[in-house]
């Protein structure tokens, strides 16, 4: 539909979503900063946005921050990739085969619903403090959104569409490529958005318990050293990554699945 009946919309109205969202973020930091105009400031207990920003910039340019992020990024990549592969495969089978779904659903729900980070010390004991231990924690935390979302996506496939493709002489391969994959893909991407957040928790928790470098380790160490502005700078870095990843996925979703808009 063309939009020719709306010529006089102000800049503020057009971008009000971004402006209002940014406004509340700004208010939050201003309020934080302003609090210490009235409350005595003790750098051993709390930090202020201006100090955090200073530390952030300093650590960014010294390369420490990027080094820690890179160290943590490797197990994240392994763990997350494994979660996609395993989660999607298990989810497809659970969604397609009714009995497999019945059999595995309660067990998977138990794992998904329970705080698996409690298992982190055990995983560290089994697999050590290196890449593999962290990757497994990340995998454990992020695999379940993929399983459940993929299964839901497969179950949601309209039988009618399968019949349509069959009736036009479509083969099994056509069913997969033209109905099942395009139908399930958006569910998988939505699962990825949830999984990213859980995976980031995994990396922090893994490194809190035992590590010698990495962003989670940095947060824990700066906390122990009462270097709170640096600790918050690391947390800020994680926050930025989390927002970029989830918003990036959301953006990719809109770009890749335009037909989902309005559904």
């Amino acid at each position: 539909m063309t939009d020719d009946a709306a010529p006089h919309i102000s800049f503020a109205t057009r971008h009000r979503k971004v402006l209002l969202g940014g406004f509340s973020v700004a208010i939050f930091f201003i309020a934080w900063q302003a609090t210490f105009l009235f409350v005595p400031f003790n750098p051993l207990f709390i930090s202020k946005p201006n100090l955090i920003l200073d530390s952030f910039v300093e650590m960014l340019f010294s390369g420490d921050l990027l080094h820690d992020l890179a160290v943590s990024g490797v197990p994240f990549l392994y763990g997350f990739t494994a979660a996609v592969v395993v989660g999607v495969s298990v989810g497809v089978v659970m969604g397609w085969r009714v009995r497999v779904g019945y059999a595995l659903d309660p067990l998977m729900t138990v794992f998904y619903a329970s705080p698996l980070v409690a298992l982190a010390p055990l995983v560290i004991v089994f697999f050590g403090v290196g890449v593999s231990g962290k990757a497994i924690i990340i995998f454990l935390l992020s695999v379940f959104p993929f399983i459940f979302n993929t299964a839901a996506g497969v179950r949601a496939i309209d039988r009618l569409l399968i019949n349509v493709v069959r009736s036009m002489g479509g083969t099994e391969k056509d069913l997969y490529l033209k109905v099942i994959v395009p139908g399930v893909l958006p569910y998988i991407v939505a699962g990825a958005r949830i999984a990213v957040g859980r995976g980031l928790i995994g990396i922090l928790v893994g490194e809190f318990f035992a590590a010698s470098e990495g962003i989670g380790y940095a947060i824990a160490r700066f906390g122990d050293l009462f270097a709170l502005d640096k600790m918050f700078a690391c947390i800020l870095a994680i926050m930025i990554i989390a927002v970029v990843l989830t918003e990036g996925i959301r953006w990719a979703e809109r770009a890749a699945f335009p037909w989902r808009i309005g559904q």
Binding site: D158, L160, L161, V164, S167, M168, G169, P182
Partner: peptide
């Protein structure tokens, strides 16, 4: 199934991603 026949379905059966 064969291409000498084609069905028009009550619920349309259009692929939503196309």
């Amino acid at each position: 199934p064969g291409t000498d026949r084609a069905m028009v379905f009550q619920e349309f059966g259009l692929l939503p991603w196309r």
